[in-house]
Design a protein around this nucleic acid. Structure first.
Length: 585
RNA sequence: CUACCCGUGGCACAGCUGGAUAGCGCGUCAGACUCCGACUCUGAAGGUCGAAGGUUCGAAUCCUUUCGGGUAGGCCA
């Protein structure tokens, strides 16, 4: 459709020139004005002529009339003027033939914008905090981030997926202190992150209790105190100074956590190229702080070192605390500089909650002020917050869903259904994993990423309507039909096609521009919605047209070809939103 | 207080570089399997697009104001 749109725009531009003299409008201008009519009975492509009436000094109705008479093209079965709109109806059969052969020719590259050749993009996403539960709040960054990676890979970019682990900070002092007090290998080894979380919660509660006790009976304004908190600080200081015991414990905590996260990543089909977390950048920050200071960007305010961003209507960006220690933005800047050096990226994408938008705007600005000319290659991709069945996420009240539990639930539901049809236990498990996890991913990626998501358990796990299982089922159906006609090649014939077939071809043809939109808006949901459009078009076609049982031999070949093209396109589209496409369900 | 994001049928969401009767799913009601996998398809009911102004030939879409919800705002990340 894209190329047809181009061609149409050129044709119109020429017609305008013929009728009104001189080159009044360029093909690009016309291209931008072309749109898809709301109702297909009006046509397949339309040019509203209202805006042209000023430059062409005619009424829109007249313009449409005049142009309709002077445009001829084999691709169109009709060009008509209606109420100031110039409508084009394409020759469906010819169009479908072209689309399908295009799909066959490009294969799994069909739909790629091919705009990333020779370019590198670094994507920072998922990035869980070590020793903390990996819950539904992390689903957004993980799944949006990975989909963006797949989209960029599809476009030809070299991609580097970075899991910027939260593996450093005072919380490790607390954890180490807690472990030394109450923990042991025998519980943490099998218990994993859950055990670490228990220790962390316990140490925090204990510190809170000690602090409250320290205030009891004391006059107002007495600073609170906790011996355990002091201990935790001391443990972290030891860790920072390279104490071997603490370092070993820390590494172990990281490994235990990562091992567990990997299970979730594996279910999602995600692998990262780098796991360099916060700890990696600790020794890279001083150089950047020094640079800031030398450039005179740093101001001291209340003892803290800040960069003033008044001019850009933003609050100050904190670089160093009054005790001289670093902060989040400091580390992000150091990490960005390091990554630029390491990967020389053409784009660095950060997928985090929209709650961090200000933070990113601030440190991006600081990077610019530091004179790094690649500051405009930094992209923050925010997304809305998640609530569960209408209630806010809260670890304290227990209103959280761990990702591993959510997936386990989804998988078990699918497995129950799959068992009824499939006796092979191993295959059931495989299917259950891809369909169960796919249901959740699809549900999540259905929404515009900026919208706050209200995670409705029942909807997420549902199989009816616009769901992941529906999409995968449709894919499996294309496979199943093609299985029946294995021996036949299924090339487009000269048979005249009906409405459902042409509609399907048009939907297949729309894929490239949807991929383009998803890429330029950093919006995977565009692909998700495309998947639904394609499934709807195919199911309608499937319902109304016999494929394997079609009696007209020519028509049958065309229908098989359309089914092949659907399978190819749907498979690619599903892949782009982190979904597997099993051949059988 | 300031900034950003969101506000579309009962629910959950598309549509937003302005364009022809505002779409899809769930739910509700009514239909369709001697037929390639019914996790399917067809139809009906249901909306003053939060509200008010403005710009325009034309506004869910742009501007202003306003209401409601969310998030953030110097020593957390």
């Amino acid at each position: 459709m894209l190329t047809l749109k181009n061609k149409t725009a050129a044709l119109i531009a020429k017609a305008v020139e013929d009728k009104f003299g001189a080159a009044l409008l360029s093909g690009e201008e016309i291209f931008a004005m072309l749109e898809y009519p709301p109702d297909k009975s009006m046509g397949d492509l339309a040019l509203p002529c209202f805006r042209l009436s000023k430059t062409l000094r005619r009424s829109p109705v007249q313009i449409a009339d005049m142009l309709s008479q002077s445009i001829e093209c084999a691709e169109f079965s009709a060009v008509s003027a209606i109420n100031g709109y110039l409508n084009f109806k394409i020759d469906g059969t010819a169009f479908a033939r072209r689309v399908v052969s295009d799909v066959f020719e490009k294969g799994d590259r069909y739909g790629s914008p091919e705009c990333g050749e020779g370019k590198t993009v670094v994507l920072d996403y998922s990035s869980p905090n070590v020793a903390k539960p990996f819950h539904i709040g992390h689903l957004g960054t993980t799944v949006i981030g990975h989909s963006l990676k797949l989209l960029h890979e599809f476009a030809g970019y070299k991609c580097v997926g970075i899991n910027y682990l939260g593996d450093w900070g005072t919380q490790f002092g607390k954890l180490i202190a807690a472990y030394k007090k109450w923990g042991d290998k025998a519980t943490v080894e099998p218990g994993g992150v859950d055990e670490l979380v228990k220790l962390y919660v316990r140490v925090n509660n204990e510190i809170g209790r000690e602090e409250a006790a320290s205030l009891e009976g004391k006059p107002e304004g007495t600073p609170k105190h906790s011996a355990l908190a002091d201990e935790a600080r001391a443990e972290f200081a030891k860790l920072e100074h390279g104490d071997e015991e603490n370092l070993a414990l820390w590494r172990w905590f990281v490994d235990v956590s990562l091992e567990e996260y990997q299970r979730t990543y594996k279910l999602l089909g995600i692998e990262f190229d780098s796991y360099k977390g916060e700890s990696f950048y600790t020794d890279k920050m001083p150089a950047q702080v020094e640079k800031l200071r030398n450039m005179g960007l740093l101001e001291i305010d209340d003892g803290a070192s800040i960069v003033n961003l008044d001019k850009w209507n933003m609050p100050v960006c904190l670089i160093l605390k009054s005790d001289g220690t670093t902060l989040y933005p400091t580390r992000d800047i150091a990490a960005a500089v390091y990554r630029k050096g390491e990967y020389n990226f053409d784009k660095a994408i950060y997928v985090t909650s929209a709650a961090q938008s200000l933070h990113f705007a601030q440190w991006f600005k600081v990077v610019e002020l530091m004179g790094y000319d690649w500051y405009d290659k930094l992209v923050h991709v925010p997304y809305g917050t998640v609530s569960i069945n209408g209630a806010k996420l809260a670890t304290r009240t227990g209103n959280v869903i761990l990702l591993k539990d959510l997936f386990a639930e989804a998988i078990s539901r699918v497995r129950d259904i799959a068992r009824e049809k499939n006796p092979d236990e191993e295959e059931c498990q495989r299917i259950a994993e891809s369909v169960g996890v796919g249901a959740i991913v699809f549900y999540y990626l259905s929404n515009n990423r900026m919208r706050d998501i209200n995670f409705m358990m029942e909807d997420a796990l549902s199989f009816d309507g616009n769901t992941g299982p529906y999409a995968q089922y449709t894919y499996a159906r294309t496979c199943s039909v093609l299985d029946k006609v294995l021996s036949e090649c299924g090339e487009m014939s000269c048979a005249t096609l009906g409405e459902e077939e042409v509609e399907l071809a048009k939907t297949i043809a729309a894929f490239p521009e949807r991929v383009n939109a998803a890429l330029s808006d950093y919006e995977p949901s565009v692909v998700t919605r495309y998947v639904l459009d394609l499934c709807a078009a195919f199911n309608r076609f499937y319902h109304n047209c016999s494929i394997a049982n079609c009696e007209n031999a020519d028509l049958k070949q065309s229908r098989i070809a359309l089914t092949r093209a659907t399978k190819q396109t749907l498979g690619t589209a599903l892949h782009l939103i982190c979904m597997q496409s099993p051949e059988k369900i």
